[in-house]
Design a protein around this nucleic acid. Sequence first.
DNA 1: AGATGGCAGTAG
DNA 2: CATCGCTACTGCCATCT
Length: 772
Amino acid sequence: MEGESNQKYSHHGGNFGSYFRQKQEKLALQDDNEYSKKSNIFANCKVYINGNTDPPAIILKKLIIENGGEICAFLGRKSSATHIMATHLTNQKIKDFANHRVVLPEWVTESVKLGVLQDWTKFRTIKIESCFNVPSDKVLVVPKQDPAALNMNIIDSPGTKGDKVRIEWILNHRLKINCLNKSFISDYFNQSRLHFMSTRKLQLRRKCRTYQPPLFPTQGSERTLIHVDYDSFFVSASLRSRPDLSDQPVCVSNGSSGSDIASANYKAREYGVSNGMWVGKAKQLCPNLICLPFDFTEYAKCSDILYDTLLALNPLRISAISLDEALVDISNMADEAETVSQEIRRSIKDQAGIDVSIGIGSNILLARLALKKAKPKGQCVLSPEQVGEFNIRDLPGVGRQVQQKLDKLGIEKVSDLKSVPLSKLNSAVGNALSRKLHEYAYGKDTDDIRTLDTPIKTVGIEIGWAIRLISNEEVAQFVFNCCEELFSRLNAVNAYCEMITVKQYRKMSDAPFVAPKHLGHGHCDIASKTKKVNNKLTFEELVEDVMFLIQQLNCPPLEFRGIGLHMQVKEVESEIESREEPARKPFQSRIKFSTTKLPPPVTPTKQVLPSILPKPPPPKKRFTVTQLFQDANDASYTSQASLNARILSELPSQTRRQILLNEDDYLPSLSAPSLPLVTTDFLGKTSLSELRKLLKKWIDSCAAPTSNDARRFFNFIRLSITEDTLWARAAKLVDWIKVLAKDKPEWLYYHSLLYEETQKQLLAKNKATKLF
DNA sequence: AGATGGCAGTAG
DNA sequence: CATCGCTACTGCCATCT
Ligand SMILES: Nc1ccn([C@H]2C[C@H](O)[C@@H](COP(=O)(O)OP(=O)(O)OP(=O)(O)O)O2)c(=O)n1
């Protein structure tokens, strides 16, 4: 795998890692037989010996191997070397070896002498004394209290003392958190609340889009909307296991001073603590503030409860605002909006144990403001005349900046908006927003709930934490890892890419090198570059384009603080709808669907006429909420016999996957179809390389796997991935398929299924290991 | 004059 | 010890074609 992927990306002209990868070690490895095992001091150590050493490499090698260690002949990008041995390093090598343990030969000789493995940090090659000519009492160890004492902010030209001090600072922090680690991105995302919320919202959006509402005669434009939201969501969820704290000021956060408060309870808010505030500041306002940790699994469960409950109502429309918040059109039960709301709140509270508030109104604005008024633990109906009393900050689209601008015009309350001429408003906050605000002042809102859940337009990733890089090579390596992440996201949605945007956080010139938040991005300039791309974007092209744009942005590695990679996309579904593409997906076309003419294109964002869809679930009767829960999991429409490609593509991916993996076998393309499935082997092959060869033959032989083959291998992977001894091999095989599947959409899709499944299983096993 | 790229701002 | 500052969207403006 290593070899192939190197070849594969070699046309990037050594942009990244080539220095390591291509380098052939001079040290000749002779036969290993002449060594006699003496101890296990260096068990699990793999040492790469760099250049001339004292004592010479041949001696060190003998010592290491005889005492249970291994020698690496190469230093690859994903090399398994645990230590690099060197007596002397050039400045370039100091950078290149930044994220390695670089040790002096004495580490080996001392360890052998004392019979115990010595702490490598006591034998660093990269030390201030030897490399930077800076007095040793000044640096290396990060001071506990005052990082600024490190004097990171020396302003000088690159390559001088200040840079070296900064590099040293970075190297030290790397030992704990290293953004170049293969698993960094997935590790980070697994801990990031904002990432969790964003991805969760995406899923919910999809869920809401595929929801099929009941038929209901629309009576004019009169609507009844409810805005449903958990009260102080994260902290309420976390407090369920700590009821003893419920009357204390409590928040959910990661660490101490510079850590974001995700959610503060109402008690804490009395002190002025708010969501998004740093813990340090909050503690000043409220010294007794208690911090609880995140529990994403629980948040996901509660989120599901909320959405399942609302969907079980059979509303006319549901729109995902966030994981804890939804906007629901219940015009079909308008008369009972209040009692329905009571029921929803009681039911969710029963299931999740968290208070829910609901705002009821005839448009989106009124529902939102009603919710604001209802909180906490309440519900409220709002009419247009009542909006005047709210603060302008409560209005959608009014954040900190707009609030400041309006403040200068003397506008504080929504009612104040009426007295300011539109032209004045216009020049302060722009054309679109001023019109909107003017409407809001009268409780009007022309936005339609149906336009909220539109098809996705961009897919992107951003990382703005722990990015500390010291060379262009490292920048390239990190960006490459980001590309992998982005590409897998593109594969996860059914879309093709039209444009790529690279966004870069660059430390402002007057900002301190050490950011106020630990490993935060600090005060940054943000620049971006965009490039149009070929529709059928391959991974290599993506990397190439992104590298090109990064190069254009031309940020010194030491100032690189964050990155965003975004793709402007078109969802593929709409393409299938508008043009009948009979065999676009062999996978899908093999499904025996009825030959009846496809209905005209229907997108969920337009008025949907359920009657033309294949047997939607029958409109359910007015509910008692508990009754409806039993129906909530009803998947009757997925079992309909008459499927066609378009409808298939609109199904929730879970369902769709089920169908794909259950459809009849087609042509067996593997020669030995009847071998039994055993977890440890697949068609008799157990070793990684044998399995890779098998996969290569298989994938090269056809454009798409047959369903039977697909299912068998899928099961093989699925079973392996939960085994402690097998999961790493399975993960590598999935990775391998991605490489082989290049330019084969069916295989790429198959890969995405495998990927999804393995990720899920790994996460479930708490082996949050990044696969790719 | 419309299209496009870069950027700010907002929400949760 | 620290800390996990994401991501999709809209709209404005300057500059282009
Ligand atoms: N800056 C923010 C804002 C919100 N959230 C998370 C935590 C919240 O619990 C959740 C929902 O956000 P809300 O704005 O709905 O706030 P709460 O639910 O915490 O409180 P409220 O009762 O005001 O809705 O999103 C976050 O992590 N960081």
